[in-house]
């Protein structure tokens, strides 16, 4: 499932963001959307964060939302070498972001299945201890993620 969603043009290898808002904006900026749509998407993601951080701990966050602005389920992956204060459950800075956006009428529960797959990969990466952050290419990051995808 993740193999289908991971795209080299939706990868950020060295995020500049320092705060939660900046991180979400940087991830949203990767998408080919108008400024108006980006703002709608950002607000939708922040709305979810109000319910509790999607920083699941151990340096990983999974911001997610259903939004009217996308046409298909969309995944953006970002790496922050310095780490971002994302108000995570364990208080640790986030180095790896998986931002998942689905359409409001997501068919066949694809969205929840994708979220589950990301959570599973995240647990596998976190289990190893320190998260790798020095990727030389988007392809290398995709391969790193897929190597942890044990369905």
């Amino acid at each position: 499932m993740l193999r289908e969603l991971l795209r080299e043009d939706r990868i950020i290898l060295d995020m500049k963001a320092k705060t939660k808002e900046e991180a979400l904006r940087e991830l949203v900026d990767v998408l080919d959307l108008s400024d108006d749509k980006k703002e709608i998407l950002f607000k939708s993601l922040m709305q979810r964060e109000v319910l509790g951080s999607t920083g699941i701990g151990k340096g990983i966050a999974i911001p997610h939302s259903r939004s009217i602005v996308v046409d298909n389920i969309t995944l953006v992956v970002g790496v922050s070498r310095e780490g971002v204060d994302f108000e995570s459950l364990d208080g640790k800075p986030v180095h790896l972001f998986f931002m998942l956006i689905a359409t409001p009428n997501d068919p066949s529960m694809k969205y929840l299945t994708a979220l589950g797959a990301i959570a599973r990969v995240s647990r596998s990466i976190a289990h190893e201890g320190e998260i790798k952050t020095d990727f030389s290419s988007p392809r290398e990051l995709i391969d790193y993620i897929l190597a942890h995808d044990h369905e």
Binding site: L51, G52, T54, A119
Partner: peptide, 12 residues
């Protein structure tokens, strides 16, 4: 209920 089961994210 599937949300918490699949993601491990619990919302207060």
């Amino acid at each position: 209920p599937e949300y918490e089961a699949k993601t491990g994210l619990k919302v207060d």
